[in-house]
C-alpha cells in the first residue's frame, strides 16, 4: 500500500524497457493509473529493489506475462450498467437486426463477461445465429479465460440482478451450469465469438463493424491516445453503425465527434 516507493522517473524507465524489449507501448497510458498498477505489483510480488523488479520485467518472459496481466485492469462484470444494456436491447440491436449479418467488436474484452452478456441479448432477440462477436484484448491470458466462458459462481447473483434490471425476462440460470465454484456459460453463446489479441495502441483496423463496444478501456489512456483509438474505431465502423463507451467516457472532445450522434442518455453514438 505504500505508494512512494517508485517514482515517476522509474515508471518511465520501466515502461521504456517494456516497449523496447516486449513491444508493448504503455507510454500514453494515464500516468497516475499505470503508476498505481506498477507500484501495486511491485509491493505484491515483494521485490527487494526497483533494480531487481526492472531486471525481472525485462528478462523474464514468464514474469512479463504476469506483469502484462496485472498492469492492465481486467475487472469486468456481466450486464454492468443495466440501463446501458437496456438501450442495446431496445434501441440498438433491433436496428442491427434488419441487416443480413451483424458484426460486433468488443475491444478490450478482458475475461469476456461483456461478450457473453451481448451474446445473451442477441440470443433473446433471435439474432445470435446471424451475428459474429469479435472479442479482442491486449492480453493473451485473459483471452484464454474468456474463451472458456466460465465465471466465478459467487458473482452470479449480482449478474442475475443486473440482467433483470437490464430488461431480461428469462431465468438467468438457464444460461449456465454450475460447476464447483464456476458457472459455465452455454456453448451456443461462445460459438458466435472469435477471440484474438489486438493492441489498441499499435494494431490497425481489421474489419468493419456495425457495433463496437469499448467500455472502461479508454479511461486508462491519455487524451492523445484516446483520439488515436477513436480514429481507429472510426475506420472500423460502417456508416450508421454504433460505438458504445463506458459510463464515464465520452467522444465529446474528439475532433470528428460531429460525425456521430448520441443515442438518448447512454454512452452510445451512431455514425452518421
Amino acid at each position: 500500500m505504500i505508494s512512494e516507493v517508485i517514482d515517476n522517473e522509474q515508471v518511465e524507465l520501466l515502461l521504456n524497457d517494456v516497449l523496447e524489449t516486449h513491444g508493448y507501448d504503455f507510454l500514453e497510458y494515464s500516468h497516475a493509473s499505470i503508476k498505481r498498477r506498477i507500484t501495486r505489483l511491485y509491493a505484491l510480488d515483494s521485490f527487494v529493489s526497483f533494480a531487481e523488479f526492472r531486471y525481472t520485467v525485462k528478462t523474464d518472459k514468464q514474469y512479463f506475462k504476469r506483469f502484462l496481466e496485472e498492469i492492465t485492469v481486467n475487472v469486468t462484470e456481466m450486464f454492468r450498467d443495466p440501463s446501458f444494456y437496456k438501450a442495446l436491447r431496445n434501441d440498438v440491436l433491433p436496428v442491427l437486426g434488419t441487416y443480413p449479418f451483424i458484426r460486433i467488436w468488443v475491444a478490450g474484452c478482458s475475461t469476456g463477461e461483456e461478450a457473453f452478456s451481448l451474446a445473451i441479448l442477441l440470443k433473446e432477440l433471435n439474432l445470435l445465429n446471424k451475428s459474429l462477436i469479435y472479442a479482442t484484448d491486449i492480453n493473451p491470458s485473459v483471452l484464454e479465460k474468456a474463451k472458456k466462458g466460465m465465471f466465478p459462481l459467487n458473482y452470479l447473483k449480482q449478474y442475475s440482478e443486473n440482467y433483470l434490471q437490464s430488461g431480461g425476462t428469462k431465468d438467468f440460470s438457464t444460461y449456465y451450469t454450475a460447476n464447483y465454484s464456476l458457472a459455465k456459460f452455454d456453448e451456443s453463446l461462445s460459438s458466435k465469438m472469435i477471440f484474438s489479441t489486438h493492441n489498441l495502441v499499435s494494431d490497425h483496423s481489421f474489419n468493419e463493424f456495425q457495433l463496437i463496444l469499448c467500455r472502461n478501456v479508454l479511461i486508462y489512456f491519455d487524451k492523445d491516445l484516446q483520439h488515436k483509438v477513436f480514429n481507429l474505431f472510426d475506420n472500423s465502423i460502417e456508416n450508421l453503425g454504433y460505438l458504445a463507451l463506458g459510463s464515464k467516457e465520452s467522444l465529446d472532445f474528439w475532433p470528428k465527434a460531429k460525425g456521430y450522434k448520441r443515442i438518448k442518455q447512454e454512452k452510445i453514438w451512431r455514425k452518421l
Binding site: 515517476n8 494515464s30 497516475a32 485492469v73 475487472v75
Partner: peptide, 18 residues
C-alpha cells in the same frame, strides 16, 4: 464504482480496478 486519481497536471483519472 470508480476509483479517482489525480494526475500531475491536476486532471482527473478514473480507474475501474479492484
Amino acid at each position: 464504482d470508480y476509483h479517482m486519481l489525480i494526475e500531475e497536471d491536476h486532471s482527473i483519472s478514473l480507474d475501474y480496478s479492484e
